[in-house]
Design a protein around this nucleic acid. Structure first.
Length: 507
RNA sequence: GGGUUGCUAGCUCAGCGGUAGAGCACUCGGCUUUUAACCGAUUGGUCCUGGGUUCGAAUCCCAGGCGACCCA
């Protein structure tokens, strides 16, 4: 199907022969489509305003008559019609180009990018338009746009060729504009409170700070195997040791895991650490940041997600993991003396896959994931986790066996995770060594001991509250997007070409 | 990992064992108030790939590829 393309290359060539550059250098606009639509909303049909405006954008649609043409022009803000009258264009451009109007008819296509100068007028039929006096073709497009009516709906194509998706589905651009506003709002909020953003390494010799399988890579010059970070936690804590009291990093994290509507192997988190604070402070901060971002982006705290009404008004519900599980299953895991007792009760309550679990804490967590998580629609802090699943959190000040940790759930999804950070280097070493042992025993989500991190802790870290927020999931919530791929501009997809060169160590 | 499902023209889709189709887009002709412009004519295909069954396969079967949704 190179016919269309060949025709357009030929048109570009014709433009060159006419002394025009089909790939121009610059254009100065004085207006945008949306601003004009707003400013002249009350202009009556058939009325023209004698102002000169300059605008540029992509031709989305062409309706061409013998001596008159209507183009739909799209810029980043929206669309506006071009009213192209042969007489007017020839009167203005005719001296230099006697075929100016015909060239517009014959050498432009839907998809081309064009600059236009003219006056503002509302046509007899009521469409606000720019009545063109002159135009300049800025970029000749060689490929046809998708069907002007049905657009681009093939999901795979939309992801693989997101630029086309963005051209023809304006709501996609709205989503990414909103996502940018979310991250900007969060940074502004933190900046105003004297948090500073410090960039920590993506390439690391030890992956740590989370339970996840890392991507492995190799640095030639130092002959080191390296990992892409799975969290920013351990380096941000080093900064706290170093004397910073309020730090954060909003950036990309990599986990070598599957793809789903909630997971992409690279995603964005923000981790925030505040010295002399604890997880109660972090709960308040989580609420404040989310509320601030929602108000900035949506102007309201009463939002709708996939048809469900969500109220972000703080304070949010807080409930311990034990109580949440007890409410849902009737089982009180705090009451068990032995692992077997807990397993039996869990199985009785219809919780699957607990037979091999090594601790009551893991069973509790499993019960939570199976019976509670998906029902946490309104923002809810689940607090006080078992120590077994929280190797970086400080022991609870009053509840043995638990740590001071919370996770935030909204629309059934974990959206934030936070602790009073563990600052005892001896305790921390024991817990990391247990993780390393688990890795040695085959747990792919466990990682080795980061000795340098422990050294840092031994120099002394102040009491610290830490918080991680999943930016993609927050963006999904605030853009009403059902899939994480909708809020990632270029989500990971398998290569279209079958790859034969993948190394698999699986036997 | 399992289940369901999709892949046909640039786009959106129909065809489901008997000569590969429609609308839009493209090309050509006509047209000064259209907005899915209209009227007329034309053009356009690795039916995802590879095997198999059959006189005959886009269609049925097997394997694979790339997606989507659901489940553990």
């Amino acid at each position: 199907m190179s016919d269309l393309r060949a025709t357009r290359i030929e048109k570009a060539e014709q433009l060159r022969e006419l002394g025009k550059n089909p790939y121009e250098y610059r254009w100065e606009s004085t207006a945008t489509a949306a601003a004009l639509q707003e400013k002249y909303a009350d202009l009556e049909n058939g009325q023209e305003v004698e102002v000169e405006v300059a605008i540029a954008g992509r031709i989305m649609n062409r309706r061409v008559f013998g001596k008159l043409a209507f183009f739909t022009l799209q810029d980043e803000t929206g669309t506006i019609q071009l009213f192209l009258d042969k007489k007017k264009i020839q009167a203005n451009m005719g001296e230099a180009d006697e075929k100016a109007f015909n060239n517009l008819k014959n050498l432009t296509d839907a998809g081309d990018i064009i600059g236009v100068k003219g006056s503002v007028r509302r046509t007899d039929k009521g469409e606000l338009s720019i009545s063109a006096a002159e135009y300049l073709i800025l970029t000749k497009s060689l490929l046809p746009l998708p069907d002007k009516w049905h657009g681009l709906t093939d999901v795979e194509k939309r992801y693989r060729q997101r630029y086309v998706d963005m051209i023809v589905n304006p709501e996609v651009r709205t989503t990414f504009r909103r996502r940018a506003k979310i991250t900007a709002a969060i940074r502004r909020y933190l900046d105003e409170r004297d948090f500073i953003e410090i960039e920590t390494p993506v390439l690391q010799t030890e992956a740590g700070g989370a339970a996840a399988k890392p991507f492995v890579t190799y640095h030639n010059a130092t002959e080191m195997q390296m990992y892409l970070r799975i969290a920013t936690e351990l380096h941000l804590k080093r900064l706290i040791v170093g004397g910073f009291e309020k730090v954060f990093e909003l950036g990309r994290i990599f986990r070598n895991e599957g793809v789903s509507t909630r997971h992409n192997p690279e995603f964005t988190s923000i981790e925030i650490y505040q010295a002399y604070a604890d997880y109660d402070d972090m709960m308040a901060l989580t609420e404040a940041i989310t509320v601030y971002a929602a108000e900035d982006v949506l102007g309201t705290l009463e939002i709708e997600y996939q048809g469900e009404k969500i109220n972000l008004q703080a304070p949010w519900k807080r409930i311990t993991m034990h109580d949440a599980v007890k409410e849902a299953t009737g089982v009180d895991f705090a009451a068990f003396e032995s692992l077997d007792e807990a397993k039996a009760a869990a199985q009785e309550a219809g919780i699957h896959g607990v037979a091999e679990m090594p601790s009551i804490g893991k069973i509790l967590n499993e019960a939570f994931e199976q019976k509670v998580e998906e029902n946490l629609i309104q923002p809810t802090f689940i607090i006080d986790y078992p120590v077994e699943i929280s190797p970086l959190a400080k022991p609870h000040r009053s509840k043995p066996g638990l740590v001071e940790r919370f996770e935030l759930f909204i629309v059934g999804r974990e959206t934030a995770n936070s602790f009073s950070e563990l600052t005892d280097p001896v305790d921390q070493r024991q817990r990391l060594e247990a993780q390393a042992a688990a890795k040695a025993a085959g747990d792919e989500e466990a990682n080795d001991v980061d000795e340098d991190f422990l050294t840092a802790l031994e120099y002394g870290m102040p009491p610290t509250g830490g918080l991680g927020i999943g930016i993609d999931r927050l963006a999904m919530l605030l853009t009403d997007s059902p899939s994480i791929r909708d809020v990632i501009a270029f989500p990971l997809l398998r290569s279209e070409k079958a790859m034969q060169n993948e190394p698999t160590e699986e036997a």
